[in-house]
C-alpha cells in the first residue's frame, strides 16, 4: 500500500480585510469605522497525496494556489479543517517538520543578495545540520546537473534570473526534503533554462523519490513533470485526476493544422469541419475526433497540396484556456461525465 504523505480534509482559509477610501479623510474614516469583509481564499478543500507523486496544482491567478502552498508549509494557519504533512501539522512549525520540507518560490528570492550563493549554502548546511560529506555530495551533484559549478562563488545579485533560480532550487533541496513545494519555479525563465529546471526536478525526483507539489502557469512544466493534476477554482477543487483525462475533459477531439501551397477554394471536404481559416485560405485549424485522425489526415493529404501539417502538442493548454475563460464548462462536464472532483 502506498504511503500517504499529505492529507487534507475540509481545509478552509478565510482572510479578513478592510476597504479604505483614498486620502487622509479615508484613513481617518477607516481608523474609526472600519468595515471588514471576509474573503474565502480556500474552502472545503480535500486532497490525498501519496509518497513519490508529482502533483500539478493549477488554477488562475487568485484561485488559492499560493494560499494552499502557504498552509502546506506552515507559513499561514488554516481557519478550519485538517492538514497533515508527513504526520505533522505544518502550522506548529516544529523543527523536525521544517527539516522535511522545502519551498521554492519563483517570485521571491530566498538567497541573500549581497553574498555568493556558496555562503548561503554553507549557512543552510548549518541550519539543517548536514554533515560536510552529505553537503559536499549533494552540492556537487546538483551544481553539476544544473551546470552552475563556476557560479557558486559569484555574488547572487550578479547572476541572471535563470542562474539565480537554479541556485534557489539548490538552496531549497540541499537538506534532501521529503516533500517539495514548487511555486512557479520557471516563471520568467527562457526556454532553455525552463527545460534545464524541469530535467533537474525529474532527475532529483527519480533519485530521491521525493513528493513534489508544483504550481505553474506554464503548461509545458505540467506536461513534463506531472502525472496527476489538481485544479483549483475560487478556492475549491474543480478537478483531481490523471493528466490524460484532463486533456480530454472537453472531449477527445484534437486540433489539426494544415498549411497549403495555394488557396483552397470554398467549399470542399475541409469546410465540413467548420475550422478556422486564415485570410487567404492557405491554412486551417480543424477539430477532429481522435479516432478519425488517421482517416481525415490521409484524405486531406490526398485532396489538397499540403506543405505542412501538425496536431497540437499541448492539448492541456487549450483545455486550461477554455476552462479559465469559461469555468462553467467544467461544472457541466463534471455533472455529465461524473468526473472526479
Amino acid at each position: 500500500m502506498s504511503q500517504k504523505v499529505i492529507e487534507v480534509i475540509n481545509l478552509t482559509k478565510q482572510f479578513k480585510s478592510y476597504k479604505k477610501k483614498p486620502g487622509l479623510k479615508g484613513s481617518l474614516q477607516s481608523f474609526f469605522n472600519r468595515k471588514y469583509s471576509i474573503k474565502k481564499a480556500v474552502h472545503g478543500f480535500n486532497l490525498e497525496i501519496n509518497k513519490g507523486e508529482i502533483i500539478g496544482l493549477l488554477g488562475p491567478n487568485g484561485a488559492g494556489k499560493t494560499t494552499l502552498m502557504k498552509m502546506f508549509t506552515g507559513i499561514i494557519v488554516p481557519t478550519s479543517g485538517e492538514l497533515t504533512i508527513n504526520g505533522h501539522s505544518p502550522w506548529e512549525r516544529k523543527k523536525e517538520f521544517k527539516k522535511k520540507i522545502a519551498l521554492v518560490m519563483g517570485q521571491k528570492s530566498q538567497l541573500w543578495w549581497d553574498i555568493p550563493a556558496m555562503d548561503s549554502f554553507l549557512l543552510l548546511q548549518k541550519f539543517y545540520e548536514l554533515s560536510n560529506q552529505e553537503f559536499k555530495q549533494r552540492l556537487d551533484y546538483m551544481s553539476e546537473l544544473l551546470g552552475v559549478v563556476d557560479l557558486l562563488h559569484v555574488h547572487v545579485r550578479k547572476l541572471s534570473l535563470g542562474e539565480r533560480m537554479k541556485m534557489e532550487l539548490m538552496a531549497s533541496l540541499l537538506h534532501n526534503p521529503d516533500v517539495i513545494f514548487l511555486d512557479e519555479p520557471t516563471i520568467g525563465l527562457d526556454l532553455v533554462a525552463q527545460e534545464n529546471i524541469r530535467a533537474f526536478i525529474l532527475d532529483f525526483h527519480k533519485k530521491n523519490g521525493t513528493t513534489i507539489i508544483i504550481t505553474s502557469h506554464y503548461m509545458a512544466d505540467v506536461q513534463a513533470l506531472c502525472k496527476r493534476l489538481v485544479l483549483i477554482f475560487d478556492g475549491t477543487k474543480a478537478y483531481d485526476g490523471p493528466l490524460e483525462k484532463f486533456e480530454n475533459i472537453l472531449g477527445n477531439e484534437k486540433t489539426v493544422s494544415f498549411t497549403f501551397s495555394e488557396e483552397i477554394p470554398c467549399c470542399g471536404y475541409l469546410d465540413e469541419f467548420h475550422g478556422e481559416w486564415n485570410e487567404g485560405r492557405t491554412s486551417v485549424d480543424i477539430r477532429v475526433p481522435e479516432e478519425n485522425l488517421r482517416e481525415v489526415g490521409k484524405k486531406v493529404l490526398d485532396l489538397h497540396p499540403v506543405i505542412e501539417f501538425n496536431t497540437e502538442k499541448m492539448p492541456i493548454e487549450r483545455v486550461m484556456k477554455t476552462l479559465m475563460t469559461n469555468p462553467e464548462v467544467l461544472r457541466a462536464q463534471r455533472d455529465h461525465a461524473n468526473l472526479p472532483a
Binding site: K70, T73, G74, L103
Partner: peptide
C-alpha cells in the same frame, strides 16, 4: 517584503 516566510521555513 514578506521575507518572513523564508524564516518560518528554516529551522532557525
Amino acid at each position: 517584503l514578506g521575507r518572513i516566510s523564508s524564516y518560518l521555513i528554516y529551522p532557525f
